[in-house]
Amino acid sequence: MDTREEMQKILDSLAQQRDELIVQAHLAKLEAMEEWESMEGKLTQLRTKASQASNVAEDAAKDIKAAAKQLAEEISRGYDKIRKLF
């Protein structure tokens, strides 16, 4: 194989790698956006629960607090997942 063919082979390989990374980056962006939208909805739910907790009796507030804590943990895991996509 001559120098020109070798260089073309290298360029072709790099072009293929680049194209694959473009596709992967696009898919990661879509996945991150889907996860982000899901976390935004959960954050809205958490804010609602926090607001409810201040307006109810102590027993009910404990239940709301437990549910809110679980939701906060889900949101945190979701943010971690998004962070890993970058």
Rank of each mutant, 00 (worst) to 15 (best):
D2M: 06
T3W: 10
T3E: 09
R4Y: 04
E5L: 09
E5F: 09
E5A: 13
E6P: 01
E6A: 15
E6N: 13
E6Y: 10
M7T: 12
Q8H: 06
I10N: 14
I10T: 12
L11N: 06
D12C: 07
D12M: 08
D12L: 07
D12F: 07
S13Q: 14
S13T: 13
L14V: 08
A15F: 03
A15P: 00
Q16A: 09
Q16H: 11
R18P: 07
D19C: 09
D19Q: 08
D19L: 08
E20R: 14
E20S: 13
E20Y: 10
E20M: 06
L21K: 11
I22L: 11
I22F: 03
V23F: 10
V23A: 13
A25C: 13
A25M: 10
A25T: 13
H26S: 09
L27N: 14
L27Y: 06
L27R: 14
A28H: 01
A28G: 00
A28P: 00
L30N: 12
L30A: 08
L30I: 05
E31A: 14
E31Y: 05
E31G: 03
A32P: 00
A32E: 01
E34N: 14
E34R: 10
E35R: 10
E35M: 06
E35Y: 01
W36P: 00
E37Y: 12
E37V: 12
E37M: 05
S38G: 08
S38F: 12
M39P: 00
M39I: 02
E40A: 15
E40H: 14
G41R: 15
G41I: 04
G41C: 06
G41P: 00
K42R: 13
K42W: 03
K42N: 07
L43D: 09
L43S: 14
T44D: 07
T44S: 14
Q45M: 05
Q45V: 02
L46K: 11
R47Y: 07
T48W: 13
T48Y: 12
K49C: 01
A50W: 08
S51V: 02
S51C: 04
A53Y: 05
A53F: 02
A53G: 04
A53R: 11
S54Y: 06
S54N: 15
N55F: 06
N55R: 10
N55E: 05
V56C: 04
A57F: 02
A57Y: 04
D59V: 02
D59E: 12
K62R: 15
D63N: 14
I64R: 00
I64V: 00
I64M: 00
K65C: 06
K65T: 12
A66D: 11
A66F: 04
A66I: 05
A66Y: 04
A68R: 03
A68F: 03
A68K: 07
K69N: 13
K69W: 03
Q70K: 14
Q70H: 07
Q70M: 03
L71A: 05
L71H: 01
A72K: 09
E73A: 14
E73D: 11
E74N: 05
I75D: 03
I75T: 01
I75W: 07
S76F: 07
S76R: 15
S76Y: 10
R77M: 03
R77E: 04
G78F: 03
G78P: 03
G78Y: 05
Y79V: 04
Y79T: 01
D80N: 15
D80F: 09
D80E: 10
K81N: 15
R83A: 08
K84W: 01
L85N: 00
L85I: 00
L85R: 00
F86N: 10
